[in-house]
Simulated scan of single mutants.
Amino acid sequence: MSREAGGSKDSQKHRRLHWSEFSRFAARIGHTLEAVTETEDWMLEFFVWFLVAGAMKPGTLANYRASLSVIQDAAGQDISHAMRSRALKLERRDRHGKHRARTPQEFSELLCAAEKLDDGVVHVIRLMRWLGLRMREALMCGRSLESWRDLILQGDRRLPVERGAKNGRPRRTEVLADHVEETLDAIDAALAFCRDRDFELITGCHDDLKSAKARLKSRFDQLPMRKELGSHSLRFTYAVDFGNAALDRGIPPVEVLTQLSDRLGHGPSRVKMILEVYCWQIRHRFPDKMRLPVDFTPLKKPDRTKPSSPATASASERMQPDKGDGRRRRWPARGRRAATHHAGSQRAHRLT
């Protein structure tokens, strides 16, 4: 179910671990779950308060609730009404974080320290800073560098990020208008470095992505990239430069936030988070009161009057194939191979 719901491999693994922890909690209170569909709302609410009593941080708690909601939704159960923060009166997580944008002097000092350590790390840092890439995106962008260079030379500043994007969602970043030369120079240098290395900027000990990511993280730990100046501060630097340049060109503040949210890969609906998190250092340049898209988008309430809705359908109804709600279900083909696959799916269904 977690695999069918999509997302990165880490997200799928965390969903399975979170739901397994919930099933063990249910067994401790005397309700052994043989299948995901046997879950009841009160069990989920009890589990949430159990985590709150254990002093779990609001951000981690939100991840647990999201994992349970995704699994239950894949099983045909809508539990959004039972896991809503407002209904449970849970503390909201503080998304302001601890990162900030780097000054030009701090960025130069970081590059000097990285040059003494690893040339590949230098290229990763420059790409993250000038294109606002995540660490995984910069690590895997080797085969995209040549096409990026060609687009910039053709006058196109929108570059597609197709490898390493979060949750597998391709996005398009944008070259900063005032730093086209620096960006092009960073791309050329990275391309020349990785062309003879199978387009890998960082190579791990096991010659796979996991070991390369671990190697890059260990290199970051050896550099002055901790706390407020961690690796994510490079994306903050890109965001501040983008916001300042867009405001200087006279673009409306809400449009600036919408564009920045899109360039960072968060989508157009996260403008409030972009303002409070990535742009907190230039918050004074935005009006105190703005009507952001999320401020006037009505909350869609689930229609509980339809007997065929996932939240109210009986167990027998949920087992029937969907015909009108648009959700696709996979039914095993006939034959011995299908029977084996179906048995494995049922076992995975019970074990999440």
Rank of each mutant, 00 (worst) to 15 (best):
S85C: 03
L292V: 06
L201E: 01
A192G: 03
V124S: 04
E40L: 08
R263N: 13
E115K: 14
L216M: 13
P58N: 09
A101M: 06
L292Y: 04
G76F: 09
A245Q: 13
T340V: 15
A114W: 11
L127P: 07
R304C: 10
A74V: 00
T237E: 08
R129T: 04
A87F: 13
R143I: 03
M140D: 03
A35N: 08
L117C: 08
D156C: 11
Q281H: 02
V294H: 02
K57D: 08
D248T: 11
S233A: 15
R100D: 09
R28C: 00
P332K: 12
R15A: 01
N63K: 08
M128Q: 14
E228T: 12
T203W: 01
A339I: 15
A101V: 04
L159H: 02
M43E: 09
D322Q: 13
K57L: 06
G76A: 09
A74G: 14
R350M: 12
R337K: 15
L176Q: 02
N244I: 12
A177K: 08
V240S: 02
T173E: 04
L33A: 07
C194N: 01
A348K: 15
S23H: 01
G168T: 05
W130V: 06
K227R: 13
F193H: 11
C279H: 02
V254N: 08
Q12A: 10
R16P: 00
A165L: 01
V180N: 00
A186I: 02
H81L: 14
A55P: 00
K116M: 11
T183K: 01
E182V: 00
Q222P: 00
H342W: 15
S316P: 00
M128N: 04
A101S: 14
A138M: 07
E228M: 11
V271A: 14
M43V: 03
R350Q: 15
S80V: 06
P298E: 10
L264Y: 08
A186T: 01
L110V: 10
R86Y: 06
G132K: 05
S147H: 08
A192E: 06
I29E: 14
M273C: 00
S233G: 12
V240M: 05
M140C: 10
V70M: 05
I29D: 02
L90G: 10
F25L: 03
T352R: 13
P252S: 07
S67T: 03
Q281L: 04
T203R: 13
L111S: 09
M273T: 12
V52G: 04
N167W: 05
S144F: 02
F25H: 09
G250E: 11
N244V: 13
F50G: 01
S345L: 15
V124Q: 03
G335K: 12
A113Q: 13
E200M: 00
P302S: 10
S108T: 13
M135H: 07
L127Q: 06
A55Q: 12
S144E: 14
L209S: 03
